[in-house]
């Protein structure tokens, strides 16, 4: 094991890497933008290379979100920082009820990053944009000295147009509503953890990093009956339930045995003493829906190719505990959030 402090990078000569000069506004900066970034991400709006992108007029309500991506290693089984930076922001727009339109892209690059790695990230960004039907409208590049960031940080801001019917939000969750997840949970966090720490599982656990476009399309006809949606990223499904319990004033209860968890994620979680409910997803969302709609929602997701979509619990009148789980012996007990990042146990 190499302690997984970085992803395996090819040996590079100085001309093959990003240097501080690439960020100092000189010819090297222009070359970096023109020959690498614009070349890959090209589209009529970006190609203007103005200080601000002209997006034109629109008759719909405009929605905006932003997110920063600092994953290490940059490439992991099932994804990479580039595609994740697109999917993550697109998913935030989608679950808020927007049709994603375009993104900004801000790159903070550590001096010494091989240009070949940057090229690969840019290509993955472009591929992900095409997959999601969005484009990069504007961007920025900064280079910082070695040690001031971890190879590459990315920020994307997304703009989308509001759909006719927006989800009401977690405050609208009522007693009797059902909780649904669209796929197996904890995939992303476990994949990155295993890769980062050189835990060589065969097969390696894969991240679920993907856009939620197909899920949203499948749910479109049912949307007026969906109370709220959330992609269960940092903190996992557990964190979403805690937030929703606070917003709604209900107690949210889930049944441990109904939560879909893949064999790989279960195995790694069992070994390391982690609870997949606290582990990040990057392509799985949680929904709260009216109980009469729950069956239709799950059927629609199954028919759209998401066989693991499951009804995992319900909302009920608040007692003193915000989130509870029903375990093996049918006992209901409080489900607490971890303090900080979950840490693997000793034995």
């Amino acid at each position: 094991m190499n302690n997984g402090l970085d992803c395996p990078l090819p040996q590079s000569s100085p001309s093959d890497v990003v240097s501080l000069a690439h960020g100092e506004g000189s010819g090297l900066t222009r070359r970096l933008i023109q020959d690498r970034i614009k070349k890959v991400l090209t589209n009529p709006v970006l190609d203007q290379l103005g200080d601000a992108a002209l997006l034109g007029e629109c008759s719909r309500q405009v929605m905006m979100t932003t997110d920063s991506f600092v994953v290490s290693p940059l490439k992991f089984p099932g994804g990479d920082i580039g595609s994740m930076a697109v999917y993550g922001t697109v998913n935030d727009l989608l679950v808020s009820g927007a049709v994603p339109h375009c993104l900004s892209l801000s790159l903070i690059i550590e001096e010494g990053l091989p240009l070949s790695v940057l090229d690969e990230v840019l290509e993955n960004i472009q591929r992900a944009c095409e997959e999601c039907g969005v484009f990069i409208a504007t961007g920025d590049t900064k280079v910082v000295a070695r040690g001031e960031c971890d190879l590459l940080f990315i920020n994307t801001t997304g703009i989308g147009f509001a759909r006719d019917v927006l989800p009401l939000g977690p405050a609208s969750i009522e007693q009797g509503d059902e909780l649904i997840v669209t796929g197996p949970i904890g995939q992303h966090g476990i994949a990155v953890l295993a890769c980062r720490n050189g835990l060589n599982f065969t097969p390696p656990p894969l991240s679920d990093s993907k856009p939620l476009v197909a899920e949203l399309a499948a749910l479109e006809p049912l949307m007026p009956r969906v109370r709220c949606m959330r992609d269960a990223t940092r903190g996992g499904v557990g964190a979403v339930l805690q937030e929703w319990a606070e917003s709604s004033g209900c107690t949210l209860t889930f049944r441990v045995q109904d939560v879909p968890v893949s064999l790989e994620v279960r195995a790694v979680s069992e070994l390391l003493g982690l609870d997949p409910m606290h582990v990040a997803c990057e392509g799985t969302m949680v929904l709260a829906v009216n109980s009469s709609t729950a069956k239709d929602v799950v059927t629609a997701l199954h028919n759209a190719g998401f066989p693991c979509a499951s009804r995992i619990g319900t909302a009920r009148e608040r007692d003193i505990v915000p989130v509870t789980c029903v375990g093996l012996l049918g006992q209901e007990q409080p489900f607490q959030e971890p303090l900080g990042a979950p840490l693997p146990r000793i034995c």
């Binding site: 007990q333 303090l339 146990r345 000793i346």
Partner: peptide, 28 residues
């Protein structure tokens, strides 16, 4: 409590106090 522990059993993920606090109802 886990966020301001007085003793080690409240801190460690294997400590007895940490096990009990996990299932202890806790008002918002």
């Amino acid at each position: 409590r886990p966020e301001h522990p007085l003793g080690a059993p409240m801190v460690s993920s294997e400590g007895a106090c940490a096990a009990y606090i996990q299932i202890q109802p806790q008002p918002l």
